[in-house]
Amino acid sequence: MLTRSEFEPAFWLRNPHVQTVFASKVRSSPPLEVERERLELDDGDFLDLSWLPERGLDADAPVVVILHGLNGSLESKYARGLLRQADAHGARGVLMHFRGAAEPNRLARSYHSGETEDFHTVVSHVRKRFARAPLAAVGYSLGGNVLLKYLGEQGRAAPLACATAVSVPYDLKRCAQAIQQGLSRIYQAHLINGLREAYETKFKMIEAPQPYPDFRRLRDFPSFDNAITAPLNGFRDADDYYARSSSGPFLKHIRVPTLVIHAEDDPFMSPDIIPTPEALSPSVRLEVSRHGGHVGFISAGRYGEPLYWLEQRIPAWLRERLPGFAADDTVNEAEEAG
């Protein structure tokens, strides 16, 4: 189902770049207490999980798994905001750091937009630990692409009660082209610099499996993905990576109730990337707004102060579909704190 979103931006935050930058850079982020868990993998690598502290919850209290975006982590403000919402609603919350995101991983490979096996491992781990708990997942940007692809691959076998994905690059090749245009090139440079630093740091700690070109010459995503992402992760080239990892073709196979939130003015991609109704399964509700930027969606509060609308809309979806995800007296306080 494709429908118009109820989101309306704050009058002073209508510009997509302002929405995007304010949410990721300007927004304040109070300290958040977490408990860290390292999940050892069968291939000798590891994943780092950040859990909300246990607060006397029942064994069947719901669990919300959060998947961050490219170069994201627990420091991502959208992740912290949703973890606070999970806590306020009496749920367990856990952020999955993708392989190599929190700190350099042990293997040459790292995470990418189509890597769903690691997420499947985390879901199985959570299922084993909390066998009776209803489970939901929320993914942002790259994490949203991973989540939607996983849901399409699993179909009816997906062990989730519901899911949400925000600002998803459904077609990776077209996104790689769109982010090279106009002001969007600033985001491209920022993201690639983060990737370059991560790989340079890792390859000082472990031996690279093959010689690579000077990272500083890889200034756009097709070049970077051709030289780095594809060969490290078993793809023929960037086009092969984009074709096999894009979530768009998997949307029609999703059988878990899934909310997808997208803005037409997302500066990371062009509006024509938004899936058509025919591309969606009956289980997918795609809400599209005219404004919102990339993982922005900032509206105005009572006195014009910024209100982080995603942290209202996503919990509202979870309250309807995730058993045990119920409001308590701290919800309003969490929403106001953003």
Rank of each mutant, 00 (worst) to 15 (best):
R84Y: 01
F130R: 14
V126K: 08
N233S: 14
A136D: 11
F203A: 05
L307N: 10
G338H: 03
F203L: 12
D87K: 08
G143E: 04
A279C: 07
F203D: 03
L74W: 00
K202F: 03
A133I: 10
N145P: 05
V21E: 14
G144P: 02
L148E: 02
P267E: 12
L52M: 09
A102V: 06
G304Q: 05
R127G: 06
T164D: 04
S223Q: 14
V63G: 08
T276C: 09
D225Q: 08
A238K: 02
V94M: 11
I273H: 10
L49S: 02
S110M: 15
D239N: 07
S124W: 02
I206A: 11
L195S: 02
M205I: 06
T164K: 00
R216A: 15
P209N: 09
V288W: 02
V138P: 00
V146N: 12
S246Q: 01
S167Y: 10
E37T: 15
A101R: 04
A131K: 15
T276V: 01
I298N: 03
A61F: 11
G81K: 11
R302E: 13
P257L: 08
H68M: 06
P53Y: 03
A108W: 15
V138F: 05
P211W: 04
R290I: 08
R4C: 10
G296T: 05
H262N: 13
H125Q: 07
Q312K: 14
Y140N: 01
E117D: 13
H89V: 09
A178L: 01
G155P: 10
N233Y: 08
L310W: 11
A136V: 12
T276F: 03
M205C: 11
A161M: 04
A208I: 04
L39W: 10
S289E: 08
Q180N: 07
P31A: 12
V168N: 03
T229E: 07
L259K: 03
A326D: 14
Y199W: 07
G292Y: 05
D58V: 02
K25T: 09
A238P: 00
M1D: 14
L13W: 05
Y303M: 12
S167D: 06
Q312V: 12
E33G: 00
E103A: 15
S24P: 00
V63M: 09
F215C: 14
D43N: 15
K25E: 15
V288F: 02
L70C: 06
S245Q: 04
D265R: 13
V146P: 04
I179W: 00
M1N: 07
Y111V: 14
W51S: 03
L2D: 07
F250Y: 12
G144F: 09
S289Y: 06
V18Y: 08
S28R: 15
L39F: 10
G292N: 01
I228Q: 01
Q180T: 02
S246W: 02
K204T: 10
D240E: 07
E103P: 00
H112G: 15
T258G: 05
P53D: 04
P209Y: 13
L107M: 08
Q177W: 13
S73N: 09
L310G: 05
L148T: 13
R156P: 00
G234F: 09
S124I: 07
S29Q: 10
